[in-house]
């Protein structure tokens, strides 16, 4: 309860900042939007020459792509400060301040910053999912929608957990931004059907860095009615396991933390 009230205060603060720096916000959001558009043009060009990609139609690929942007965007919106922990908060010795506050350092780090740039990504994702759903005339039931939202939320948790675990490595080695970047980049694989990859890549993004559960598997349940126990259940179970693991890594990291800087 107290947590939510605090978070509310932080968000109000950010909205004020947003109003102050409108141009900056627009540059950021538009940048992420254009980044997505170039990728969609890429898919469009491929499909101008082939009827389907590994059995998936243009709008099915667009659906999966859009779906992948939603968890990614929500995570980007809410937990962007973890990047700063990985890149420089620890290295510059600025992490000390979080340890002196009466709330959990992790909660504080996350609450402290809301990255509104992410709205560019998030809105593109939602628009693509809606457009693709209409074009493919997917019949939604209440159950399906609920499962889809659950998958998106727990998919977000997969992103966040990976960011927590990777940024916690910085407590040991001072700077883990580039490690985080590699793990984060593997999410690019998840934007396309996993069936196009070889077994090694497929198993890695399904079980080890389970980004396939942030988009392809849940989307394949919606599109093709694939087994929901695996496709949605897998997202929930793996994200919880990963989240637990990332909290352990974070705790271990904090106890190993020695302040850097002067």
């Amino acid at each position: 309860m107290r947590f939510l009230r605090l978070y509310g205060t932080f968000i109000a603060l950010h909205l004020k900042k947003l109003m102050e720096y409108r141009i900056d916000f627009l540059t950021g959001a538009v940048s992420f939007l254009i980044n997505q558009i170039t990728n969609i043009v890429f898919i469009g060009i491929i499909f101008s020459q082939i009827p389907d990609l590994d059995g998936y139609l243009f709008y099915e690929i667009i659906f999966i792509y859009g779906f992948s942007l939603v968890p990614k965007g929500i995570d980007h919106l809410l937990t962007d400060n973890l990047w700063k922990v990985a890149w420089f908060i620890v290295r510059k010795g600025d992490f000390d301040k979080y340890l002196t506050r009466p709330i959990s350092p992790l909660a504080h780090v996350i609450m402290e910053f809301v990255q509104f740039d992410a709205l560019g990504e998030l809105l593109t994702g939602i628009v693509l999912v809606v457009v693709a759903s209409v074009k493919l005339s997917i019949s939604y039931t209440a159950g399906k929608i609920v499962l889809m939202i659950i998958a998106m939320l727990f998919g977000t948790l997969i992103f966040t957990s990976i960011k927590i675990a990777c940024s916690a490595i910085a407590f040991k080695i001072k700077q883990s931004g580039s490690i985080l970047q590699i793990f984060y980049m593997t999410s690019d694989f998840a934007r396309y059907p996993v069936t196009i990859y070889n077994e090694i890549v497929k198993n890695i993004i399904t079980y080890i860095i389970p980004f396939a559960f942030t988009a392809y598997y849940p989307a394949s349940y919606i599109l093709r009615g694939n087994d929901p126990v695996f496709c949605i259940g897998g997202t929930v179970v793996l994200s919880l396991i990963l989240f637990g693991f990332s909290l352990i890594v974070w705790q271990k990291g904090i106890s190993a933390y020695e302040s850097a800087g002067s």
Binding site: Y21, D24, T27, G28, I34
Partner: peptide
């Protein structure tokens, strides 16, 4: 906002 701008430039 040079950061947002460099994302734009990159893409």
């Amino acid at each position: 906002n040079i950061w947002g701008f460099s994302i734009l430039k990159g893409s």
